[in-house]
Write a protein that binds this DNA or RNA. Sequence first.
DNA 1: GCCTAGGTCCCGTTG
DNA 2: CAACGGGGCCTAGGC
Lengths: 253, 253
Amino acid sequence: MVVELRVVLHPSPRETLHLVEEALRNGETILLVGLCGVEYEGRSSATLPPGERVVFLKSDGTLLVHQRVGNNPICWNPPGSRAKIRQEDELLLLESERLKPRENVKITFLQVVFAGSFELVDHAELELRGTERELVETLIQHPNLVEPGFRVVKREKPTRYGVIDLYGMDGEGNTVVVEVKRLASFQAVQQLRRYVDLLKQREPGEVRGVLVATRFTRGVKALLEDCGFEYRVLNPRKINKGEKGVQSRLTDY
Amino acid sequence: MVVELRVVLHPSPRETLHLVEEALRNGETILLVGLCGVEYEGRSSATLPPGERVVFLKSDGTLLVHQRVGNNPICWNPPGSRAKIRQEDELLLLESERLKPRENVKITFLQVVFAGSFELVDHAELELRGTERELVETLIQHPNLVEPGFRVVKREKPTRYGVIDLYGMDGEGNTVVVEVKRLASFQAVQQLRRYVDLLKQREPGEVRGVLVATRFTRGVKALLEDCGFEYRVLNPRKINKGEKGVQSRLTDY
DNA sequence: GCCTAGGTCCCGTTG
DNA sequence: CAACGGGGCCTAGGC
């Protein structure tokens, strides 16, 4: 149950000031709706002329300014920022400061039509399935999905140029570098290439590169071929039923 | 000014139902605060056990579920999704459906402590400064920042494997590929490498690769060196004052 | 603390 | 429409 809850409609600047100050003291969640302009200065800098928006201030310092459309906040400051509010004449100034890197968001309210503060209790954590991590675990349990005879030597093998998802050997003793992705992109191929090139300098035998993903784009397959790499399509639904859904290497075609 | 605004404290399921349904019809912005659990099924899938959260429903279909901490929503559905609400006994079910890709977010409210709908007017757009685009424009105006004698031939030159930020020639007529980034990463080096390799096959003379960025990490510089590439550090603040802040090529050290 | 890579990334642009 | 790369990305995990 929400222990504490306070709401004001069409508050005066002073009322908003008090509500926000008290909510900040108590570590409550704050929602403001009103006409405001925003200035941002930090890693980049930006100006947002006045408009009606929702401003969301969390107890961990998170500040979000949402326009009426779009998934992402138009302006924000991440957790750890510090917010202060003050009144200047009929304007309300909400300022959020982040220290590292130094970033400042300044919201000037011309009018507030709604102000609310809430004490939220929430100890639950998201349980997410179908991540890349799970794909890697699947491959460790079923190395045949990479190819019959494949043997995992190391998971998350660190190198000078990043961490190899799966490092192992094929049936003939060749080194195999496996890069795992949910969605295979150019970037994934390049990552694989970086690792393969590195190992080629160190390992004696052949070094093969394999990109395993649930989805591939056209361009990626072409680039894979150019690099001499192979790929496997993982079908997440088939995995539990068996070890189907394995593609042959590109060079088989 | 906010034309329409409706707020209910501790609404009954029926009251919430009516408020949300009417707000959806009118394309208004909806804020709900209460105890709820969430199920997500789509590109991935997830479960979030009950807790007190802020639910944000926008007129463009955006759905955001925010916990009391964190910059990002814990669950969401992007713009273009369709929301429906219905009552089952004392529970309220808010369901959001996205078609491409198919994704479903189902929120089960055990209790709503606040419901509000707002008609927001906002035609303003963010003016953002300090982007990569601006860095490229700076280089075009001051090609000396790449190096004395550098001449831009083409901006955003498309290739089979992506678009080259800047393509030009040095004082000796060699091809120069310039990749521009705010923050230099391994990925940026690989991108540069892709382009350089491609042009080496096509262009007659030498092909040089230069990575220009405002910030570099140690590992990136090492990889650049291994690839035989050069780099330049751009200081955004110095740019307007002149053409200082140019680094020599790695091989000068 | 820096650095690296993942993400239900979202988002705009381009083919 | 797919696909590719930017982002004030944020966030988690290593060292």
